[in-house]
Amino acid sequence: MDDSLLGLLRFGPDGWGDELLAGLRITLLLALTTAPVGLVLGFCLALMRRSDNARLRVPATIFTTIFKGLPELITLFIVYYGLSMAIRWVLSFVTSVHIEISAFLAGVIALGAVSASFASEVFMGALNGINRGQVEAAEALGLGRWPILRKILIPQVMRLALPGLSNLWLVLLKDTALVSVIALPDLLRRTFIAVGSTKEPFFFFTVAIVIYFIISLVSMAILALLEARFSRGYAR
């Protein structure tokens, strides 16, 4: 048998390779589930924050201020413990159905709220970058609000927002590691379990960091391709 350190990464019952891979799967799954939530919610927040209606603008501004300012870890604790208790308390008046917020769902909600807040900032910047005259021209041509949003604003916003959003994706990937603190068996937590059992913290945390680094590099390569694609029409 291979007793070297690398041997600890074997797949199967006596190695940790398969455990770490399962953890990586959860890390990626969490990031991929959260990203669309942050994206859609962030766009809505950006539109609300630009609105002339204070009833839309004020709550959206408060929401983004809170989730941009709070440490992600505290947001996570509040969602994981607090929201579960709140939901249980509210539902106790109407039904006997139990709703449980799993660590995964808590991660999606908390990290979704945080990335939505930062995404709204990116979208605001992108919306500001679009010439107001374009909307006026479209209105003059008789286009409705929805076609203007879908055909004129969103495609351009995506191009302008992509670099900022790419960065948010990388931030999100890293933030998923925080969910290990509330017991989601992601990559970092599985690494910790391996450390506890093998007493090789230096080796295993190095492996985890290398894996995170590789995902970041791969993500960046893919995002660079996407950015090139979205700005095709603007290449000189």
């Binding site: 939530v37 919610l41 709550p59 929401f63 929201l83 939901i87 006997s96 159905v97 139990h98 709703i99 449980e100 917020i101 799993s102 769902l105 999606v108 909600i109």
Partner: peptide, 20 residues
């Protein structure tokens, strides 16, 4: 926002009927 959270919670959470 609140409504979105509840909808998401309903969609993703494990719903366990209390009936024995």
């Amino acid at each position: 926002m609140n409504r979105m959270i509840i909808v998401a919670a309903l969609a993703l959470a494990t719903v366990l009927p209390a009936a024995a």
